[in-house]
Design a protein around this nucleic acid. Structure first.
Lengths: 185, 185, 185, 185
DNA sequence: AATGAATGAGTATTCATTCAT
DNA sequence: CATGAATGAATACTCATTCAT
């Protein structure tokens, strides 16, 4: 009815299934069946299975790339760092299924080149959270501040706490970590 | 020259490959080839592909189970908690390839029942790091203290820092986190 | 040249081979080779090997089901019974390769659920050939009247007699048996 | 403890399983497991899987061969024929599992050469039940008289009637059939 | 914009059999 | 009399992908 519609639906269903069952174990047959089209139809819209995944990741990637660019232009104050964490936690919340997928399918992502790209991005982001000459402990603090959010938002998924509460709690802990790092503790 | 030898060699090579290429993407053919035996030989020693993995995980699992048991019998002092983290970091260091594998293949582990077992274990362990009635922020701190070590030991794998340095730095950060949690923030 | 054609050809060749070499010993490779398609092509048309068999049996099954339904609506006279035998002998003649297959592969059919279905059908049919309160000898006569036809049409396959002659002879003997049973001997 | 013991136990268990699950679908592993020995042990006692089957069939074969020899020396009176049927029904009763196996696994037996041997034996036996120049109908009667017993003793296995009753009923019907055949109807 | 039919390469798994000990 | 270790060949089945229509 509206063009580009199927394209979008494929991405949605694919992500759903990739997150549910893993990338390798999700077959194009399953995606096609859930969409009630044929496998061949998928190939009209995407060149390969990998292509479907890449297109999904690329779409959700945008906000984080922008966040990194924004962060680069700011003075490296504690306020800036907090703002980065806050924005990252929001991106994480919004794109939860994708991040869950990424976290659980690192092995698959590895040789799809996507893996490296994502890792580098995380590394770049965490670099914005400490001084350039920071010692190892501070760098661990910075990395951990990002991991906290993954832990709280994605991994504590079925702890019984409300998503927004988990996000706030994660932010609190993340703030503490980069505050310590900021002083050089 | 061979005495219960092959069994062990299969586990070693399998873990090597599972960690290298992921569980799904590692085929029994590859394992057999690297061992220079036939696929059928694998089946003499293990009932299924899953069985190979389970046997590996079970072996490395032992120390963590013991740690949990030990932790349960101790008074829940700050000292105890630090000792738990210290011991966990050691287990993590020793069994690095396995933990890297676990972290990167969660999707595969999920429906191998192993997934749930491992998640529960992590949950149990983190519960030993806070008071029973701790609030969400403290629980996030506890969970994060474990994640810190995964981040530093496993994920920062190619940051250029020495493994033992990363382990110590992770411990430092983890101590801070559970110390905050211990006060009740 | 091909229009729903392959589906049919698979059934034909499969039955041919199943009858020739037995169900278990016929591999999908052989079926595919004789058809000059790939194994995967078979899976485009049928979900499993069992499915191929079931589809064949179901097709030939129809006439017998109809015969049973017809028989149920008739008065249980000697004439009706003879008519049942006559029609059954015709079905048997037409679908000889299938019945030969069924007779020779009971062990395989057993756990394909088909076994039970077929046995029940035979039982139902033989029940239409005697009074409801018939004694054991009469029930044996009824069952035997069906078996006669299997014996003469299928098993005496290479006795040197013409098929149609064997069918007529079998009918003669079958008539005698149910005539005895009808009197209550 | 007594020599030849294992040999015997293998035959027993093998027949049990062959009858239960079919020849093809019974693996040497299963036989070995049920016996609580290793597969290799089976090879100490029998050269091949087929060999196990052949040895079983040969053992049970003896009585029927003797019956045929006995029949050949008798005058072909109605009394003789009845005696043949009676003795055959007894053999059938005693060796039920074997005959059930034979009936359900004809496809497997076929290319084990056993098939032909057994068919020939049945043919020879039925030939003893009619005059040499008998017409087709009489030959069908003779064949059917043997089939009756298979039907009643083996196939009506779960009709709810006692085995011995079924045997007697089958004999009754079989007598009728060869009596008709004897007159030349 | 999509389908029907097919393929080639692969997968995990099973089996009968062998042989040194 | 038997086992432990292994093999070679097979099997049913799945998958991403292609292409003519």
């Amino acid at each position: 009815m509206s063009r580009g519609n199927t394209h979008q639906r494929i991405q949605d269903v694919a992500l759903e299934l990739f997150a549910e069952r893993g990338y390798e174990k999700t077959s194009l047959r399953e995606i096609a069946e859930r969409l009630e089209v044929t496998k061949a139809a998928l190939y009209y819209h995407f060149k390969t299975k990998e292509d479907i995944l890449v297109s999904i990741v690329d779409d959700f990637n945008q906000p984080v790339v922008e966040l990194i660019e924004w962060g680069r232009e700011q003075p490296r104050t504690l306020e800036t760092k907090k703002e980065i964490l806050r924005r990252y936690s929001e991106a994480l919340s919004r794109a939860q299924p994708l991040f869950r997928f990424i976290q659980e399918n690192q092995a698959s992502l590895r040789d799809l080149s996507l893996g490296e790209r994502l890792k580098k991005r995380m590394f770049t982001l965490s670099a914005l959270l400490v001084e350039e000459d920071a010692d190892l402990v501070d760098r661990v603090r910075a990395t951990t501040s990002l991991f906290t959010m993954h832990a709280a938002i994605v991994a504590m998924h079925d702890s019984g706490d409300a998503p927004e509460d988990r996000r706030q709690a994660a932010l609190t802990v993340a703030y503490e970590l980069i505050t310590s790092a900021h002083h050089g503790d």
